[in-house]
Computed example of a mutant assay.
Amino acid sequence: MGWIVTLVVGGLIGWLASKIMNTDAQQGVIANILVGVIGSALGRWLFADLLGIGAAGAAGGFSLAGLLFGVLGAAVLIFLLKLVGVFK
């Protein structure tokens, strides 16, 4: 059951980040899920571990702070993927 929630929340986070970064037309459902899950892990590492923001530890969780930091991490991931040419 935990994996299903992870996929659903990851898909939501990836979709929101793709809307913010204007890559929604280039991404499908699988890409949204992957960007959401990996971006949430990146957001937790970047904002909670490196910058010490306490609420960022919930990145990827189904809470307001978890969604916010998950989307921020996914947006950073999309930005990095744009730099290497994966997205236009």
Rank of each mutant, 00 (worst) to 15 (best):
M1V: 00
V8E: 14
I78K: 01
V37A: 12
G14E: 13
F87R: 04
G70R: 00
V29C: 11
I4W: 12
G2F: 15
K19Q: 10
W3H: 03
G11C: 05
W45C: 03
V5I: 15
L12I: 14
L34D: 03
A75C: 15
A59T: 05
F47V: 03
V8W: 14
I13Q: 11
V5F: 14
G57L: 01
L42C: 04
A58F: 11
G60L: 09
V84T: 05
A74Y: 01
V86R: 09
G60I: 03
F79M: 06
G14D: 09
R44I: 00
G2Y: 13
V84R: 09
M1R: 06
I30T: 07
G43M: 10
R44C: 00
V8P: 04
N22M: 09
G52S: 09
L67K: 02
N22K: 15
V37T: 13
F47E: 11
V71I: 15
I38F: 13
G54S: 14
G66I: 04
A41C: 02
A41P: 00
G57C: 00
V71R: 09
L42P: 06
W15P: 01
G28F: 03
G14V: 05
I30W: 11
L64T: 14
A41Q: 13
D24N: 10
L72H: 05
A17D: 11
G60K: 03
L7V: 12
F69H: 05
I38A: 15
G43D: 07
V8S: 11
V76Y: 04
L46I: 09
L72G: 04
G39S: 06
L12E: 07
D49A: 11
V37H: 08
G39C: 02
G11F: 11
V86K: 10
V86G: 02
V9P: 04
V71W: 03
G36E: 08
G11H: 04
L46M: 14
I53M: 14
L81C: 03
I53L: 15
G66F: 05
K82R: 12
L12M: 13
W15N: 07
I30C: 07
G14Y: 08
L50Q: 15
G2A: 12
L67E: 05
M21Y: 00
A56Q: 08
V5T: 13
S40E: 09
G36H: 10
V8T: 13
I38M: 14
L67S: 06
F47Q: 08
A56H: 09
L68N: 02
L72I: 06
N22D: 15
G57E: 13
I38Q: 05
G28Y: 01
A17W: 10
V84E: 07
W3R: 04
L81Y: 00
G61E: 15
L16F: 10
L34A: 13
I33K: 06
K88F: 02
A74G: 06
K88Q: 08
I53V: 14
G57W: 07
I78E: 02
I4E: 12
M21F: 01
G36M: 07
G66S: 04
A25P: 01
L80D: 00
S40P: 03
G2Q: 14
Q27R: 09
D24S: 09
G10A: 04
N32A: 07
